[in-house]
Design a protein around this nucleic acid. Structure first.
Lengths: 235, 235
DNA sequence: GTCTATAGTGCGATAGAC
DNA sequence: GTCTATCGCACTATAGAC
């Protein structure tokens, strides 16, 4: 699957997610017409992510959000009951899409080396189209309350586990040399996170998501290379 | 140099830095007795880092800082003229120590493979003893004003350049196989950052800084391994 | 469904006693 | 050098007009 195809699939999912959020939060949302609600919710989320990523969620006042989104203070409070609830809605939206897309794309029947490439590529593609959300989530997790923080941590470890499993299976089939799959998965994840956390750096260097994906896959496969010709340790 | 030796050297530098800050900010600092000032400054920085890393610098009110540090609001304002200035003082303190330690430790006459190991180890050791500051800096950079942000970005790219140079030199001497030294340095840096950004993860898994250093060095050297026996590409 | 106006709170910052 | 008391302001949240 190319990035363009991926984008098409995922953007449809995003539309679905916004509708789900509307359906699910009807207790907090005073608006009854779906068309109006979904349009405004998308606007609110988008603006909130933009402002938060510039100066942090706490520093973004609801007056900022009101001014930039074009909705009045009163209108905003028709979509959530408190600033904290807005934060939770944003977090849930992204977590849901992440899980949906990742499980959709990765096929457990593929051999581990193929699965590894697919997982890396899918993760990078997903964070590319949802860059603002991933950056937000990365930066704001510590400002959440304890139960929400726990969800974020679980979500992170869940993603890491996907890579641990692939590496273990690959080692079992002698496709990879893996001394410590937990640490290996961890550093792989850090490379994937760099793509959305340090977006400015890659944009400045004009590196596309496909170029980055190619490089990371090559680097990791080289590090994990089963090399029967050299049985020596590398230090 | 072991982590213990490193710690000893660096903590002395930290003391020096606090004195430098006092000397340099005498315009803002109303206190005249160095002993009192340095002691309270250390307390203020330490408490501010603790609270900020829990919930963000903006969310930490100066009343929080006052309560937790044991100093009154009035006393705090004897050490800085505004909350924003406090933030800048903290940023400068860390940047200064980082530069000091990194240039002290890395010996440009060593061969590239040794330099790479030293640079990785030094970086991890430094971020280990200054974990709170590095985490703070990582999370709060986007909340700084433009000139301060620029300094942070320059500092980041400077560190990355150290690795780019080592990799290029190593490739020149056929010690490493490096297809793209800029991207390679970038992913190396992301692994080093993970150590202080995701501290909770490694603490939970009881992984020490030396274990992490060993793993990262092994992983990277394996990825960069000059392997004359196999001239094939790895994909 | 969206607006404006405003209540109530907690903030950063300072003045002045000790 | 440190404290308490307080000012003015900007914030979140809501009530009520349209």
């Amino acid at each position: 699957m190319t990035f363009e195809e991926f984008k098409h699939t995922a953007l449809i999912s995003m539309e679905e997610i916004c509708q789900e959020i509307f359906a699910e939060n009807q207790a907090s949302i005073k608006i009854k017409k779906q068309a109006v609600a979904v349009k405004n919710l998308a606007n609110i989320f988008d603006t909130a992510l933009k402002l938060s990523n510039e100066k942090g969620f706490q520093s973004m006042s609801l007056r900022d959000l009101s001014r930039t989104s074009g909705l009045s203070m009163g209108a905003l409070y028709s979509y959530f009951t408190s600033k904290e609830e807005l934060l939770e809605m944003i977090q849930n939206q992204g977590r849901r899409l992440t899980r949906k897309v990742l499980t959709q794309q990765i096929n457990a029947d593929d051999p581990p080396d193929k699965m590894l490439r697919t997982a890396i590529r899918t993760h990078l593609y997903l964070t590319e189209i949802m860059q603002k959300w991933f950056y937000f989530s990365y930066m704001e997790t510590k400002n959440l309350d304890k139960p929400q923080q726990k969800k974020s941590i679980e979500s992170e470890l869940e993603t890491e586990q996907v890579f641990i499993d692939i590496l273990d299976e690959g080692a079992r089939k002698n496709l990879f040399v893996v001394e410590n799959s937990v640490l290996a998965a961890s550093v792989i994840k850090s490379m994937l996170q760099d793509w959305y956390v340090k977006r400015w750096k890659y944009a400045r260097r004009r590196i596309s998501v496909d170029e980055y994906a190619e490089f990371v896959i090559g680097f990791i496969e080289s590090a994990l290379k089963a090399d029967p010709g050299s049985g020596t340790k590398n230090r």
